[in-house]
Nucleic acid binder design. Structure first.
Lengths: 148, 148
DNA sequence: CAGAATCCTCCCGGATACTG
DNA sequence: CAGTATCCGGGAGGATTCTG
């Protein structure tokens, strides 16, 4: 079996807010990563995504199904069980996501440094760049940084 | 000199709305592409981006400056002239963007087909996936398609 | 030409229930 | 467990106008 997802793989403590890449909508990229190792069930996905609401998760998964990125399989059991799995198309996004993670891992420090050094307040458009594709090593590095 | 930007390089007629990738915020990726061939001035950037408002362009460029992606050079002339140019950091994003473009070019038809074939209305979250990283060949292919 | 200043709208998506 | 049903606020970003 596929091992359980790391609950902290998208921990809000990670530098998500600084990451300049987004795959699909806000959650799609992260969901693809969660499904990389194998099929997952609805609630299982909610764990690492943590702040996602059922409504939004449902909507996102439905959009991904419609676009042929994931399949949904409902098992007639009790309690009900539903599994989501990447299609070939969905799987093909993984290389992109990995590339984005690699880029971020390499250059994010430079961005943060530039930001620190900058006088620009970006007044109006605040210090946020759109959401998160996050690699685990990043998260850990960042955790180590803020903990110290 | 660098040749003028193709006004249609981000033509709204292109399948932007179906593209599942976004670099930075809504416009950052496109701006990086516009600057790939060399420095550009403010108004020059407005041409291919067309629907962008000065306010948003200013804000986006400022955020990009703050993050060390572009530099701004103001020439003391009359009329005023300001040029934006990619930094090394900004330039490093190009490979990512190219990869995203390549992916889209390869798989976008599959997404559109899946979408066409799908019964899912995604009721609630509509038939849109977030914005645009767009390659020229895509645009032309799509134009040819809808024109016929 | 290169923005700054205002106002305003839309809609994403979060919160909080409830159900088969 | 795997969702649906409502309600609702905030903030990105468009439209418009004005200026050095």
């Amino acid at each position: 079996m596929t091992e359980p997802l790391d609950p902290d793989m998208f921990d809000p403590v990670c530098p998500s807010s600084a990451m300049p890449f987004q795959i699909g909508d806000k959650w799609t990229g992260m969901i693809v990563r969660c499904l990389a190792a194998g099929p997952r069930r609805f609630t299982e996905l909610r764990v690492p995504l943590r702040t996602i609401t059922p409504k939004v998760l449902t909507a996102t998964l439905r959009a991904m199904r419609r676009d042929g990125l994931v399949t949904r399989t409902a098992y007639d059991e009790n309690p009900p069980r539903v599994e989501y799995e990447l299609t070939e198309l969905g799987r093909s996004m993984l290389i992109l996501i990995d590339a984005a993670c690699a880029w971020s891992e390499q250059y994010l420090p430079a961005i943060l440094e530039a930001r620190r050094a900058s006088e620009l307040t970006t007044s109006g458009e605040p210090e946020r760049l759109k959401p998160p594709i996050t690699s685990n090593s990043q998260i850990k590095a960042h955790k180590a940084e803020i903990t110290r």
